[in-house]
Nucleic acid binder design. Structure first.
Lengths: 249, 249
DNA sequence: GTGGCCGGAATGGTATACCATCCGTTCCGT
DNA sequence: ACGGAACGGATGGTATACCATTCCGGCCAC
Protein backbone atom coordinates (compact mmCIF):
# COMPACT_ATOMS: atom_id res chain seq x y z
CA UNK A 1 0.00 0.00 0.00
CA UNK A 2 1.78 3.04 1.18
CA UNK A 3 5.48 2.69 0.94
CA UNK A 4 6.29 5.06 3.72
CA UNK A 5 3.90 3.55 6.21
CA UNK A 6 5.94 0.97 8.06
CA UNK A 7 3.39 0.80 10.81
CA UNK A 8 4.36 -1.74 13.45
CA UNK A 9 1.00 -3.30 13.12
CA UNK A 10 1.94 -6.75 14.29
CA UNK A 11 -0.44 -9.57 14.60
CA UNK A 12 -1.35 -10.60 18.09
CA UNK A 13 -4.23 -8.70 19.43
CA UNK A 14 -6.67 -10.09 21.90
CA UNK A 15 -9.49 -7.66 21.57
CA UNK A 16 -10.72 -7.41 18.01
CA UNK A 17 -11.25 -9.69 15.10
CA UNK A 18 -12.23 -7.95 11.96
CA UNK A 19 -10.03 -4.94 12.26
CA UNK A 20 -7.28 -6.02 9.97
CA UNK A 21 -7.87 -4.04 6.87
CA UNK A 22 -8.63 -0.41 7.40
CA UNK A 23 -6.09 1.97 8.76
CA UNK A 24 -8.24 3.65 11.39
CA UNK A 25 -9.13 0.22 12.71
CA UNK A 26 -5.47 -0.70 12.94
CA UNK A 27 -4.70 2.55 14.73
CA UNK A 28 -7.60 1.97 17.06
CA UNK A 29 -6.23 -1.43 17.87
CA UNK A 30 -2.86 0.03 18.63
CA UNK A 31 -4.21 2.77 20.84
CA UNK A 32 -6.63 0.39 22.51
CA UNK A 33 -3.74 -1.78 23.42
CA UNK A 34 -1.81 1.14 24.81
CA UNK A 35 -4.77 2.20 26.87
CA UNK A 36 -5.53 -1.23 28.21
CA UNK A 37 -1.93 -1.93 29.09
CA UNK A 38 -1.61 1.37 30.85
CA UNK A 39 0.86 2.97 28.47
CA UNK A 40 -1.74 5.68 28.10
CA UNK A 41 -2.96 6.09 31.64
CA UNK A 42 -6.57 6.97 32.42
CA UNK A 43 -7.17 10.68 32.37
CA UNK A 44 -4.36 11.45 29.99
CA UNK A 45 -5.06 13.52 26.90
CA UNK A 46 -4.82 12.13 23.39
CA UNK A 47 -3.59 14.99 21.26
CA UNK A 48 -4.25 14.39 17.62
CA UNK A 49 -1.05 15.91 16.31
CA UNK A 50 1.21 14.23 18.78
CA UNK A 51 -0.06 10.73 18.28
CA UNK A 52 -0.51 11.09 14.54
CA UNK A 53 3.09 12.15 14.30
CA UNK A 54 4.25 9.45 16.66
CA UNK A 55 2.49 6.74 14.69
CA UNK A 56 3.50 8.11 11.34
CA UNK A 57 0.03 8.83 10.02
CA UNK A 58 -1.95 11.96 9.43
CA UNK A 59 -4.53 13.31 11.78
CA UNK A 60 -7.49 12.14 9.75
CA UNK A 61 -7.24 8.38 10.27
CA UNK A 62 -6.05 8.87 13.82
CA UNK A 63 -9.08 10.99 14.44
CA UNK A 64 -11.30 8.21 13.23
CA UNK A 65 -9.47 5.76 15.42
CA UNK A 66 -10.14 7.93 18.44
CA UNK A 67 -13.81 8.01 17.51
CA UNK A 68 -13.85 4.23 17.43
CA UNK A 69 -12.31 4.07 20.87
CA UNK A 70 -14.76 6.67 22.07
CA UNK A 71 -17.68 4.55 21.00
CA UNK A 72 -16.07 1.63 22.78
CA UNK A 73 -15.94 3.78 25.85
CA UNK A 74 -12.20 3.75 26.21
CA UNK A 75 -11.85 7.47 25.61
CA UNK A 76 -14.20 10.32 26.27
CA UNK A 77 -14.61 13.10 23.76
CA UNK A 78 -15.00 16.70 24.73
CA UNK A 79 -16.01 19.36 22.25
CA UNK A 80 -13.05 21.49 21.24
CA UNK A 81 -10.77 19.82 23.72
CA UNK A 82 -8.40 16.89 23.64
CA UNK A 83 -10.00 13.49 24.10
CA UNK A 84 -9.15 11.83 27.37
CA UNK A 85 -8.47 8.25 28.21
CA UNK A 86 -11.57 7.16 30.06
CA UNK A 87 -11.51 6.65 33.75
CA UNK A 88 -14.63 4.73 34.59
CA UNK A 89 -15.74 4.68 38.18
CA UNK A 90 -16.40 1.39 39.88
CA UNK A 91 -20.09 2.11 39.78
CA UNK A 92 -20.05 2.52 36.03
CA UNK A 93 -18.01 -0.63 35.56
CA UNK A 94 -20.44 -2.61 37.67
CA UNK A 95 -23.32 -1.19 35.67
CA UNK A 96 -21.68 -2.38 32.48
CA UNK A 97 -20.98 -5.78 33.94
CA UNK A 98 -24.62 -6.06 34.91
CA UNK A 99 -25.65 -5.42 31.32
CA UNK A 100 -23.04 -7.81 30.01
CA UNK A 101 -24.37 -10.43 32.38
CA UNK A 102 -27.82 -10.08 30.92
CA UNK A 103 -26.47 -10.24 27.41
CA UNK A 104 -24.65 -13.46 28.17
CA UNK A 105 -27.63 -14.94 29.94
CA UNK A 106 -29.67 -14.28 26.86
CA UNK A 107 -26.92 -15.73 24.73
CA UNK A 108 -26.90 -18.83 26.87
CA UNK A 109 -30.58 -19.37 26.36
CA UNK A 110 -30.29 -18.86 22.63
CA UNK A 111 -27.26 -21.09 22.40
CA UNK A 112 -28.96 -23.90 24.25
CA UNK A 113 -31.79 -23.65 21.77
CA UNK A 114 -29.92 -22.99 18.55
CA UNK A 115 -26.33 -24.17 18.78
CA UNK A 116 -25.32 -26.65 16.14
CA UNK A 117 -23.37 -29.79 17.05
CA UNK A 118 -20.33 -28.37 15.30
CA UNK A 119 -20.49 -25.20 17.35
CA UNK A 120 -20.85 -27.15 20.56
CA UNK A 121 -17.90 -29.26 19.60
CA UNK A 122 -15.81 -26.17 18.91
CA UNK A 123 -16.77 -24.72 22.26
CA UNK A 124 -15.80 -27.98 23.89
CA UNK A 125 -12.39 -27.70 22.27
CA UNK A 126 -12.01 -24.20 23.68
CA UNK A 127 -12.97 -25.35 27.15
CA UNK A 128 -10.37 -28.09 26.96
CA UNK A 129 -7.75 -25.67 25.69
CA UNK A 130 -8.47 -23.29 28.52
CA UNK A 131 -8.11 -26.01 31.12
CA UNK A 132 -4.85 -27.16 29.54
CA UNK A 133 -3.33 -23.72 29.31
CA UNK A 134 -4.49 -22.92 32.77
CA UNK A 135 -2.67 -25.94 34.13
CA UNK A 136 0.44 -24.58 32.50
CA UNK A 137 -0.06 -21.17 34.06
CA UNK A 138 -0.34 -19.37 30.77
CA UNK A 139 -2.56 -16.59 31.95
CA UNK A 140 -2.61 -14.55 28.79
CA UNK A 141 -3.56 -17.45 26.61
CA UNK A 142 -6.22 -18.41 29.09
CA UNK A 143 -7.62 -14.93 29.00
CA UNK A 144 -7.71 -14.89 25.25
CA UNK A 145 -9.27 -18.33 25.02
CA UNK A 146 -11.80 -17.46 27.65
CA UNK A 147 -12.92 -14.52 25.59
CA UNK A 148 -13.07 -16.68 22.50
CA UNK A 149 -15.23 -19.14 24.32
CA UNK A 150 -17.71 -16.56 25.47
CA UNK A 151 -17.83 -15.18 21.99
CA UNK A 152 -18.43 -18.63 20.61
CA UNK A 153 -21.36 -19.17 22.93
CA UNK A 154 -22.87 -15.89 21.88
CA UNK A 155 -22.27 -16.77 18.25
CA UNK A 156 -24.00 -20.09 18.80
CA UNK A 157 -27.11 -18.16 19.68
CA UNK A 158 -27.30 -16.94 16.09
CA UNK A 159 -28.36 -13.42 16.87
CA UNK A 160 -26.22 -10.94 14.97
CA UNK A 161 -27.29 -7.91 16.97
CA UNK A 162 -26.54 -9.66 20.20
CA UNK A 163 -23.11 -10.59 18.95
CA UNK A 164 -22.36 -7.02 18.05
CA UNK A 165 -23.51 -5.53 21.31
CA UNK A 166 -21.86 -8.25 23.31
CA UNK A 167 -18.62 -7.56 21.49
CA UNK A 168 -18.87 -3.90 22.36
CA UNK A 169 -19.25 -4.67 26.03
CA UNK A 170 -16.38 -7.12 25.95
CA UNK A 171 -14.16 -4.44 24.48
CA UNK A 172 -15.39 -1.89 26.95
CA UNK A 173 -14.71 -4.17 29.86
CA UNK A 174 -11.52 -5.60 28.49
CA UNK A 175 -9.30 -4.03 31.09
CA UNK A 176 -11.45 -4.96 33.98
CA UNK A 177 -11.95 -8.51 32.80
CA UNK A 178 -8.23 -8.76 32.37
CA UNK A 179 -7.70 -7.70 35.92
CA UNK A 180 -10.14 -10.27 37.12
CA UNK A 181 -8.55 -13.00 35.04
CA UNK A 182 -5.23 -12.36 36.75
CA UNK A 183 -6.75 -13.57 39.94
CA UNK A 184 -6.04 -17.22 40.17
CA UNK A 185 -7.80 -17.76 43.43
CA UNK A 186 -11.05 -18.67 41.82
CA UNK A 187 -9.51 -20.60 38.98
CA UNK A 188 -11.21 -23.82 39.96
CA UNK A 189 -14.59 -22.18 39.97
CA UNK A 190 -13.97 -20.58 36.59
CA UNK A 191 -13.05 -23.90 35.07
CA UNK A 192 -16.06 -25.51 36.68
CA UNK A 193 -18.25 -22.79 35.23
CA UNK A 194 -16.87 -23.41 31.79
CA UNK A 195 -17.47 -27.07 32.11
CA UNK A 196 -21.01 -26.49 33.26
CA UNK A 197 -21.64 -24.23 30.30
CA UNK A 198 -20.42 -26.88 27.94
CA UNK A 199 -22.54 -29.56 29.53
CA UNK A 200 -25.52 -27.22 29.42
CA UNK A 201 -25.04 -26.84 25.71
CA UNK A 202 -24.63 -30.54 25.15
CA UNK A 203 -27.78 -31.35 27.07
CA UNK A 204 -29.68 -28.24 25.96
CA UNK A 205 -30.14 -27.44 29.61
CA UNK A 206 -30.98 -23.77 29.75
CA UNK A 207 -31.31 -23.73 33.52
CA UNK A 208 -27.84 -25.13 33.98
CA UNK A 209 -26.47 -22.63 31.53
CA UNK A 210 -28.14 -19.83 33.40
CA UNK A 211 -26.67 -21.01 36.68
CA UNK A 212 -23.18 -21.33 35.24
CA UNK A 213 -23.23 -17.88 33.70
CA UNK A 214 -24.60 -16.42 36.89
CA UNK A 215 -21.83 -18.02 38.90
CA UNK A 216 -19.29 -16.76 36.39
CA UNK A 217 -20.48 -13.20 36.68
CA UNK A 218 -20.86 -13.34 40.41
CA UNK A 219 -17.20 -14.19 40.52
CA UNK A 220 -16.30 -11.40 38.14
CA UNK A 221 -18.22 -8.84 40.14
CA UNK A 222 -16.65 -10.06 43.33
CA UNK A 223 -13.17 -9.78 41.90
CA UNK A 224 -13.77 -6.36 40.44
CA UNK A 225 -15.32 -4.97 43.57
CA UNK A 226 -12.40 -6.22 45.60
CA UNK A 227 -9.78 -4.97 43.16
CA UNK A 228 -11.21 -1.56 42.42
CA UNK A 229 -13.41 -1.02 45.38
CA UNK A 230 -11.55 0.03 48.47
CA UNK A 231 -8.34 1.70 47.48
CA UNK A 232 -8.33 2.97 43.95
CA UNK A 233 -11.34 4.98 43.05
CA UNK A 234 -10.21 7.46 40.47
CA UNK A 235 -6.59 6.68 39.90
CA UNK A 236 -6.89 3.09 38.88
CA UNK A 237 -4.29 0.48 39.10
CA UNK A 238 -1.55 1.42 36.78
CA UNK A 239 1.16 -1.13 37.18
CA UNK A 240 -1.31 -3.92 37.43
CA UNK A 241 -1.88 -4.69 33.80
CA UNK A 242 1.28 -3.08 32.63
CA UNK A 243 3.76 -5.88 32.63
CA UNK A 244 1.49 -8.58 31.40
CA UNK A 245 0.24 -6.81 28.34
CA UNK A 246 3.22 -4.69 27.53
CA UNK A 247 5.05 -7.69 26.22
CA UNK A 248 3.39 -7.35 22.85
CA UNK A 249 4.52 -3.82 22.26
CA UNK B 1 -40.93 20.71 3.90
CA UNK B 2 -39.96 20.03 7.40
CA UNK B 3 -40.58 22.87 9.76
CA UNK B 4 -37.36 23.97 11.21
CA UNK B 5 -38.32 23.81 14.82
CA UNK B 6 -40.40 20.70 14.99
CA UNK B 7 -38.00 17.84 14.56
CA UNK B 8 -39.40 14.46 15.51
CA UNK B 9 -35.89 13.68 16.27
CA UNK B 10 -35.26 10.14 17.41
CA UNK B 11 -32.76 11.59 19.80
CA UNK B 12 -30.67 8.47 19.93
CA UNK B 13 -28.28 9.80 22.49
CA UNK B 14 -29.77 9.57 25.89
CA UNK B 15 -26.44 9.16 27.54
CA UNK B 16 -24.27 11.68 25.78
CA UNK B 17 -25.46 15.21 26.22
CA UNK B 18 -22.95 16.82 24.00
CA UNK B 19 -24.60 15.60 20.84
CA UNK B 20 -26.39 18.81 20.11
CA UNK B 21 -23.69 21.24 19.30
CA UNK B 22 -21.14 19.62 17.07
CA UNK B 23 -21.48 19.78 13.33
CA UNK B 24 -21.12 16.06 12.60
CA UNK B 25 -23.83 15.35 15.14
CA UNK B 26 -26.11 17.86 13.48
CA UNK B 27 -25.41 16.36 10.08
CA UNK B 28 -26.02 12.90 11.45
CA UNK B 29 -29.33 14.02 12.78
CA UNK B 30 -30.26 15.44 9.40
CA UNK B 31 -29.27 12.34 7.52
CA UNK B 32 -30.89 10.11 10.11
CA UNK B 33 -34.09 11.94 9.56
CA UNK B 34 -33.84 11.56 5.82
CA UNK B 35 -33.21 7.88 6.17
CA UNK B 36 -35.99 7.23 8.63
CA UNK B 37 -38.50 9.22 6.62
CA UNK B 38 -37.56 7.43 3.45
CA UNK B 39 -36.05 10.40 1.65
CA UNK B 40 -32.94 8.28 1.41
CA UNK B 41 -34.35 4.88 0.61
CA UNK B 42 -32.76 1.69 1.90
CA UNK B 43 -30.03 0.46 -0.34
CA UNK B 44 -29.19 3.86 -1.77
CA UNK B 45 -25.61 5.04 -1.73
CA UNK B 46 -24.44 7.97 0.34
CA UNK B 47 -21.72 9.60 -1.71
CA UNK B 48 -19.56 11.84 0.38
CA UNK B 49 -19.06 14.52 -2.22
CA UNK B 50 -22.69 14.73 -3.26
CA UNK B 51 -24.14 15.05 0.18
CA UNK B 52 -21.38 17.26 1.49
CA UNK B 53 -22.03 19.61 -1.39
CA UNK B 54 -25.79 19.38 -0.99
CA UNK B 55 -25.62 20.23 2.69
CA UNK B 56 -23.02 22.90 2.24
CA UNK B 57 -20.26 21.33 4.28
CA UNK B 58 -17.01 19.67 3.47
CA UNK B 59 -16.49 15.96 3.31
CA UNK B 60 -14.78 15.70 6.66
CA UNK B 61 -17.69 16.41 9.00
CA UNK B 62 -20.09 14.60 6.70
CA UNK B 63 -17.82 11.62 6.85
CA UNK B 64 -17.99 11.65 10.61
CA UNK B 65 -21.73 11.92 10.47
CA UNK B 66 -21.89 8.83 8.29
CA UNK B 67 -19.73 7.02 10.81
CA UNK B 68 -22.17 7.92 13.54
CA UNK B 69 -25.05 6.57 11.52
CA UNK B 70 -23.06 3.47 10.76
CA UNK B 71 -22.58 2.76 14.42
CA UNK B 72 -26.30 3.25 14.88
CA UNK B 73 -26.84 0.69 12.19
CA UNK B 74 -28.66 2.98 9.81
CA UNK B 75 -25.98 2.79 7.15
CA UNK B 76 -23.53 0.06 6.32
CA UNK B 77 -19.93 0.88 5.50
CA UNK B 78 -17.99 -0.92 2.83
CA UNK B 79 -14.27 -0.48 2.45
CA UNK B 80 -13.46 1.71 -0.52
CA UNK B 81 -17.06 1.92 -1.61
CA UNK B 82 -19.94 4.27 -0.94
CA UNK B 83 -21.82 3.67 2.29
CA UNK B 84 -25.31 2.34 1.78
CA UNK B 85 -28.49 3.08 3.63
CA UNK B 86 -29.07 -0.07 5.61
CA UNK B 87 -31.70 -2.48 4.52
CA UNK B 88 -32.19 -4.79 7.43
CA UNK B 89 -33.86 -8.08 6.72
CA UNK B 90 -36.81 -9.12 8.82
CA UNK B 91 -34.62 -11.67 10.53
CA UNK B 92 -32.15 -9.03 11.60
CA UNK B 93 -34.89 -6.73 12.83
CA UNK B 94 -36.39 -9.51 14.89
CA UNK B 95 -32.97 -10.26 16.32
CA UNK B 96 -32.61 -6.65 17.39
CA UNK B 97 -36.07 -6.61 18.85
CA UNK B 98 -35.20 -9.70 20.83
CA UNK B 99 -32.20 -7.93 22.32
CA UNK B 100 -34.20 -4.80 23.00
CA UNK B 101 -36.77 -6.93 24.76
CA UNK B 102 -34.11 -8.26 27.09
CA UNK B 103 -32.76 -4.81 27.71
CA UNK B 104 -36.19 -3.55 28.65
CA UNK B 105 -36.91 -6.57 30.81
CA UNK B 106 -33.73 -5.84 32.69
CA UNK B 107 -34.68 -2.20 32.89
CA UNK B 108 -38.03 -3.19 34.31
CA UNK B 109 -36.43 -5.18 37.07
CA UNK B 110 -34.05 -2.39 37.91
CA UNK B 111 -36.77 0.20 37.80
CA UNK B 112 -38.98 -1.78 40.14
CA UNK B 113 -36.09 -1.94 42.55
CA UNK B 114 -34.60 1.50 42.19
CA UNK B 115 -37.15 3.96 40.83
CA UNK B 116 -37.73 6.98 43.01
CA UNK B 117 -41.24 8.18 43.77
CA UNK B 118 -40.62 11.21 41.61
CA UNK B 119 -39.63 9.07 38.68
CA UNK B 120 -42.68 6.89 39.10
CA UNK B 121 -44.86 9.93 39.22
CA UNK B 122 -43.31 11.27 36.03
CA UNK B 123 -43.87 7.96 34.30
CA UNK B 124 -47.45 8.02 35.46
CA UNK B 125 -47.86 11.40 33.86
CA UNK B 126 -46.51 10.03 30.61
CA UNK B 127 -48.88 7.09 30.73
CA UNK B 128 -51.78 9.46 31.23
CA UNK B 129 -50.60 11.71 28.44
CA UNK B 130 -50.32 8.77 26.09
CA UNK B 131 -53.85 7.62 26.88
CA UNK B 132 -55.17 11.12 26.40
CA UNK B 133 -53.42 11.71 23.10
CA UNK B 134 -54.39 8.32 21.92
CA UNK B 135 -58.02 9.06 22.54
CA UNK B 136 -57.58 12.11 20.35
CA UNK B 137 -56.00 10.04 17.61
CA UNK B 138 -52.72 11.87 17.72
CA UNK B 139 -50.54 9.02 16.61
CA UNK B 140 -47.31 10.92 16.36
CA UNK B 141 -47.53 12.38 19.79
CA UNK B 142 -48.38 8.96 21.09
CA UNK B 143 -45.35 7.50 19.43
CA UNK B 144 -43.10 10.17 20.84
CA UNK B 145 -44.56 9.88 24.30
CA UNK B 146 -44.36 6.13 24.18
CA UNK B 147 -40.67 6.36 23.48
CA UNK B 148 -40.27 8.87 26.29
CA UNK B 149 -42.00 6.51 28.65
CA UNK B 150 -39.80 3.59 27.81
CA UNK B 151 -36.78 5.77 28.20
CA UNK B 152 -38.05 6.97 31.52
CA UNK B 153 -38.44 3.43 32.77
CA UNK B 154 -34.92 2.61 31.69
CA UNK B 155 -33.67 5.76 33.32
CA UNK B 156 -35.44 4.81 36.50
CA UNK B 157 -33.25 1.72 36.63
CA UNK B 158 -30.23 3.97 37.21
CA UNK B 159 -27.84 2.08 35.01
CA UNK B 160 -26.02 4.43 32.66
CA UNK B 161 -24.67 1.72 30.40
CA UNK B 162 -28.08 0.21 30.01
CA UNK B 163 -29.51 3.59 29.13
CA UNK B 164 -26.90 4.09 26.47
CA UNK B 165 -27.32 0.71 24.85
CA UNK B 166 -31.07 0.87 25.10
CA UNK B 167 -30.99 4.22 23.37
CA UNK B 168 -28.92 2.76 20.57
CA UNK B 169 -31.43 0.03 19.99
CA UNK B 170 -34.30 2.46 20.08
CA UNK B 171 -32.61 4.51 17.39
CA UNK B 172 -31.80 1.46 15.36
CA UNK B 173 -35.37 0.25 15.52
CA UNK B 174 -36.93 3.65 15.19
CA UNK B 175 -38.37 3.04 11.77
CA UNK B 176 -39.76 -0.35 12.60
CA UNK B 177 -41.26 0.77 15.88
CA UNK B 178 -42.82 3.64 14.05
CA UNK B 179 -44.42 1.24 11.61
CA UNK B 180 -45.77 -0.79 14.45
CA UNK B 181 -47.12 2.25 16.23
CA UNK B 182 -49.15 3.15 13.16
CA UNK B 183 -51.20 0.05 13.74
CA UNK B 184 -54.12 0.98 15.87
CA UNK B 185 -55.62 -2.45 16.06
CA UNK B 186 -53.85 -3.31 19.27
CA UNK B 187 -54.17 0.09 20.82
CA UNK B 188 -56.16 -1.19 23.77
CA UNK B 189 -53.51 -3.76 24.57
CA UNK B 190 -50.76 -1.18 24.33
CA UNK B 191 -52.52 1.11 26.75
CA UNK B 192 -53.19 -1.79 29.07
CA UNK B 193 -49.51 -2.71 28.95
CA UNK B 194 -48.54 0.81 29.86
CA UNK B 195 -50.93 0.85 32.72
CA UNK B 196 -49.62 -2.47 33.96
CA UNK B 197 -46.06 -1.16 33.82
CA UNK B 198 -47.02 1.83 35.88
CA UNK B 199 -48.80 -0.27 38.45
CA UNK B 200 -45.83 -2.60 38.57
CA UNK B 201 -43.60 0.33 39.40
CA UNK B 202 -45.95 1.67 42.01
CA UNK B 203 -46.21 -1.69 43.75
CA UNK B 204 -42.62 -2.72 43.05
CA UNK B 205 -44.01 -5.80 41.39
CA UNK B 206 -41.24 -7.12 39.18
CA UNK B 207 -43.28 -10.06 37.94
CA UNK B 208 -46.05 -7.81 36.73
CA UNK B 209 -43.54 -5.57 35.04
CA UNK B 210 -42.02 -8.54 33.33
CA UNK B 211 -45.40 -9.69 32.08
CA UNK B 212 -46.33 -6.26 30.79
CA UNK B 213 -43.09 -5.79 28.92
CA UNK B 214 -43.35 -9.27 27.49
CA UNK B 215 -46.85 -8.58 26.26
CA UNK B 216 -45.68 -5.30 24.81
CA UNK B 217 -42.91 -6.92 22.84
CA UNK B 218 -45.03 -9.83 21.77
CA UNK B 219 -47.30 -7.30 20.18
CA UNK B 220 -44.41 -5.48 18.55
CA UNK B 221 -43.01 -8.66 17.10
CA UNK B 222 -46.41 -9.67 15.85
CA UNK B 223 -46.92 -6.34 14.13
CA UNK B 224 -43.51 -6.31 12.57
CA UNK B 225 -43.72 -9.85 11.33
CA UNK B 226 -47.03 -9.11 9.74
CA UNK B 227 -45.92 -5.83 8.23
CA UNK B 228 -42.54 -6.86 6.91
CA UNK B 229 -42.94 -10.55 6.68
CA UNK B 230 -44.75 -11.66 3.56
CA UNK B 231 -44.32 -9.06 0.88
CA UNK B 232 -41.51 -6.72 1.44
CA UNK B 233 -38.26 -8.47 2.13
CA UNK B 234 -35.64 -6.30 0.51
CA UNK B 235 -37.47 -3.27 -0.80
CA UNK B 236 -39.14 -2.04 2.32
CA UNK B 237 -42.01 0.31 2.57
CA UNK B 238 -41.09 3.68 1.28
CA UNK B 239 -44.00 6.05 1.51
CA UNK B 240 -45.09 4.68 4.82
CA UNK B 241 -43.13 6.84 7.16
CA UNK B 242 -42.52 9.62 4.72
CA UNK B 243 -45.29 12.08 5.23
CA UNK B 244 -46.12 11.14 8.75
CA UNK B 245 -42.71 11.93 10.14
CA UNK B 246 -42.94 15.51 9.05
CA UNK B 247 -45.47 16.61 11.56
CA UNK B 248 -43.84 15.54 14.74
CA UNK B 249 -43.16 17.80 17.53
C1' DG C 1 -1.74 43.37 45.86
C1' DT C 2 -5.39 41.73 43.39
C1' DG C 3 -8.55 41.16 39.67
C1' DG C 4 -9.82 41.66 35.06
C1' DC C 5 -8.43 42.07 30.29
C1' DC C 6 -5.76 41.08 26.35
C1' DG C 7 -2.78 38.42 23.23
C1' DG C 8 -0.27 34.50 21.72
C1' DA C 9 0.32 29.55 21.65
C1' DA C 10 -1.87 25.16 21.50
C1' DT C 11 -5.36 22.25 19.77
C1' DG C 12 -9.53 20.43 17.84
C1' DG C 13 -12.62 21.45 13.67
C1' DT C 14 -13.03 22.15 8.80
C1' DA C 15 -11.83 22.60 4.01
C1' DT C 16 -9.42 20.95 0.17
C1' DA C 17 -5.97 18.76 -2.73
C1' DC C 18 -4.07 14.46 -3.83
C1' DC C 19 -3.78 9.33 -4.03
C1' DA C 20 -5.39 4.40 -4.38
C1' DT C 21 -8.81 1.48 -5.55
C1' DC C 22 -12.86 -0.07 -7.87
C1' DC C 23 -16.09 -0.39 -11.79
C1' DG C 24 -17.74 0.17 -16.36
C1' DT C 25 -16.34 0.53 -20.92
C1' DT C 26 -13.67 -0.09 -24.78
C1' DC C 27 -10.52 -2.10 -27.68
C1' DC C 28 -7.59 -5.63 -29.17
C1' DG C 29 -6.68 -10.46 -29.91
C1' DT C 30 -8.18 -14.90 -30.81
C1' DA D 1 -18.33 -12.56 -32.38
C1' DC D 2 -16.73 -13.18 -27.89
C1' DG D 3 -13.58 -12.71 -23.91
C1' DG D 4 -10.07 -10.53 -21.36
C1' DA D 5 -6.97 -6.84 -20.42
C1' DA D 6 -6.19 -1.98 -20.27
C1' DC D 7 -7.90 2.73 -19.83
C1' DG D 8 -10.57 6.38 -17.57
C1' DG D 9 -14.03 8.18 -14.51
C1' DA D 10 -15.94 8.00 -10.02
C1' DT D 11 -15.29 7.55 -5.18
C1' DG D 12 -13.54 6.64 -0.63
C1' DG D 13 -9.00 7.23 1.96
C1' DT D 14 -5.27 10.19 3.35
C1' DA D 15 -2.46 14.24 3.95
C1' DT D 16 -2.16 18.93 4.87
C1' DA D 17 -3.24 23.81 5.19
C1' DC D 18 -6.28 26.93 7.38
C1' DC D 19 -9.74 28.53 10.83
C1' DA D 20 -12.03 28.96 15.49
C1' DT D 21 -11.92 28.32 20.02
C1' DT D 22 -9.79 27.69 24.34
C1' DC D 23 -6.29 28.11 27.76
C1' DC D 24 -2.59 30.48 29.95
C1' DG D 25 0.57 34.04 30.98
C1' DG D 26 1.52 38.69 31.50
C1' DC D 27 0.23 43.38 31.70
C1' DC D 28 -2.47 47.16 33.19
C1' DA D 29 -5.88 49.44 36.02
C1' DC D 30 -7.88 49.96 40.30
Amino acid sequence: MRGSGTTPDPAPDPASDLADRTRPAALARLLRREILTGVLPPGSAIKERDHADRLGVSRTPLREAVRILAQEGLVTLRPLRSPLVAQPALEEVLAEIAVLRRLELFSGELACANATPAEIKAIGALVAAIARDHAQGDRLDVFDLDMQMHRAIVAAGHNAALMRTHGEYLARLFRVRFLSARERADAARVLADHDAMLRALQTRDAALMDAAITAHFDGLERNITRLLGPASGPQADEGAAGDAGAAGG
